[in-house]
């Protein structure tokens, strides 16, 4: 890390409908500040009023937030976001755009790449700049079994980072971000699809699965009883996840599914209960810091990657662990 990118580093500020920042954005801002000593970090906010988030953005030392007003266009449509962001890249001369790695942002990045010629890395677990200021990103592939490092050779780089790639920290200097207004004319191509309906999922009261530090997961072995899994997650302040079998059986909502086609998690601690560890599931959790597995089948593939594997009945082991943790914590 030494070279500095020309133009600002733009961070796409994912937010809720009522203007609250998604927590993983704070990690991006922390990472962006540290990219180069003279890095200029600016926010990109599509739709709505950024007002409610300015306090939090100021704690991240952000000097300016670009508010991209898309008029009557639907700001949740990814082609609309991509076009607005493309206009901002041109207007600011930004050479690096950062975003949280999500399904929506992958679509945004893909369209931004087609429109601007930018090179894209998704699901990055780390990022630095080389001597020429080019973006160099780390990424694990093949269900977490390979580590790769790649450089973006195109003039503009878009890097989407996985949650937990860095620890969010406040900036040493708190700022009052200035809001820079842009009105973006959205073209016909971005309006070819319409959003008929959008239902934001209600929070579970637990941390967000993709960003949680602790994730407790239930699989086939729960037989539909997530009681012990939820109890352990709540004791540890963690999120609850599930395998494909558990969501297909309707034991828990589909959005709890961890795996290659579901949510990818990289928590400090992963605890799998009754999870066999099929390759599809491993692809979504193998970069966890510590992996603990409880399964009654000694042949379960998850034991091949577990730091602590326990062959046993989860309905016995988890309650005992909960009781002991309560005792140890006094």
């Amino acid at each position: 890390m030494s070279g500095s990118p020309a133009g600002p580093v733009l961070v796409l500020l994912d937010h809720t409908a009522d203007g609250m920042l998604r927590p993983a954005v704070l990690e991006l801002l922390t990472l962006a500040r540290g990219l180069a000593p003279d890095a200029v970090v600016e926010g990109a906010w599509v739709g709505g009023d950024p007002g409610p988030a300015l306090g939090e953005l100021g704690e991240q030392g952000l000097v300016s937030v670009h508010h991209l007003d898309v008029g009557v266009a639907e700001p949740h449509l990814t082609p609309v976001v991509a076009q607005a962001l493309g206009a901002l890249v041109t207007a600011t001369g930004a050479r690096l755009v950062l975003g949280v790695s999500s399904f929506e942002n992958k679509e945004v990045a893909a369209r931004l790449g087609v429109a601007t010629g930018a090179g894209v890395v998704t699901d990055a677990s780390g990022l630095e700049l080389d001597d020429d200021g080019a973006a160099v990103a780390d990424k694990t592939v093949f269900a977490g079994t390979w580590n790769t490092r790649c450089v973006v050779t195109a003039p503009v780089a878009v890097v989407l980072l996985k949650a937990n790639a860095v620890q969010a920290e406040p900036a040493s200097l708190v700022t009052s971000p200035a809001v820079v207004e842009h009105v973006v004319e959205i073209g016909e191509l971005a309006l070819r699809q319409t959003l008929v309906e959008r239902t934001e999922r209600a929070g579970s009261g637990r941390p967000e699965l993709g960003a949680a530090q602790v994730v407790v997961v239930g699989g086939r072995g729960t037989n539909g009883d997530f009681g012990p899994v939820e109890a352990l997650a709540d004791l540890l302040g963690g999120a609850v996840g599930a395998t494909r079998v558990a969501t297909d059986e309707g034991w828990i909502a589909h959005d709890a599914q961890i795996g290659q086609t579901g949510v990818t998690v990289a928590p400090r601690l992963y605890i799998g209960a009754g999870v066999s560890g099929a390759v599809h599931h491993r692809g979504g959790m193998q970069s966890a810091g510590t992996i603990v597995a409880v399964n009654s089948d000694p042949e379960a593939p998850i034991f091949e990657i577990a730091d602590l594997g326990i062959v046993g009945d989860l309905f016995v082991v988890l309650p005992q662990a909960i009781e002991e943790l309560r005792r140890l914590r006094g």
Partner: peptide
């Protein structure tokens, strides 16, 4: 580490964490 529950594995798990 791979262990088989001998009646103490829950406590072992707690201690490990």
């Amino acid at each position: 580490v791979l262990i088989t529950d001998d009646g103490e594995a829950g406590r072992t798990l707690a201690t490990y964490l």
